[in-house]
């Protein structure tokens, strides 16, 4: 069984992976993310993204100027959306707990696949997860895919297509032999063969 969790769906996939021995692998899409030193070092690079400046300009065009020829296209875009003030709150595991949970999953022979995106997320470089929870075991038994140009909702069709294909590749490559989950020590032996 390979649960795939997306966003808050990761909460359930995570608990399932911990509790159910039938789970041989789990895919976490835009799941738990913790800001690291590397994240903050790269954070100012956002200033070089034209799309952020465009959005900032659009949100700050004074109402009387929204019909002006130069900004007419941007001025048509609503200043706020109906769901702007909706905040989704989730209970986040502590960093120590999440590291322990990943170690526990790996010790049970489960393979992990993490997908993160860029844009407005709290994840901004491919190795951020390893920077946060990196252990040799995690590097060996987990794959991480980072799509800096995708957004959290995978709005663009190409982004969704790429994501689905990548998950299929991971499943085929990791579970192609359809072996049931084995403890990490066993799978290490298998890797050496």
């Amino acid at each position: 069984m390979i649960p795939v969790g997306f966003c808050s769906g990761v909460d359930t996939a995570h608990r399932l992976a911990l509790a159910d021995e039938r789970v041989s692998g789990v895919c976490f899409i835009e799941g738990y993310v913790y800001r690291t030193r590397g994240f903050y070092v790269r954070y100012p690079l956002r200033l070089f993204e034209p799309a952020r400046w465009r959005r900032a300009v659009a949100r700050n065009i004074p109402q009387p100027l929204r019909g002006a020829p130069l900004v007419r296209r941007l001025g048509r875009i609503p200043l706020s959306a109906a769901d702007d003030d909706i905040v989704y709150l989730r209970e986040y595991p502590s960093p120590g707990q999440i590291r322990g949970d990943y170690a526990s999953m790996i010790a049970c022979g489960k393979r992990l696949f993490f997908v993160y995106v860029g844009k407005d997320s709290s994840y901004n470089h491919a190795n951020q997860l390893l920077e946060f929870a990196g252990t040799p075991e995690l590097q060996r038994h987990a794959e991480i895919e980072y799509y800096p140009r995708a957004d959290h909702t995978f709005y663009l069709p190409d982004d969704r297509r790429r994501l689905v294909q990548r998950i299929c590749v991971w499943v085929d490559r990791t579970f192609g032999s359809r072996r049931p989950a084995q403890p990490a020590s066993d799978s290490r032996e298998r890797d050496r063969e």
């Binding site: 799309a51 465009r54 659009a58 048509r76 875009i77 959306a81 407005d120 957004d151 959290h152």
Partner: peptide, 14 residues
Amino acid sequence: LFDATQRLRLLHPA
């Protein structure tokens, strides 16, 4: 207009 709004909010090219 919806598409333009989403692209702007989600930081995709116009």
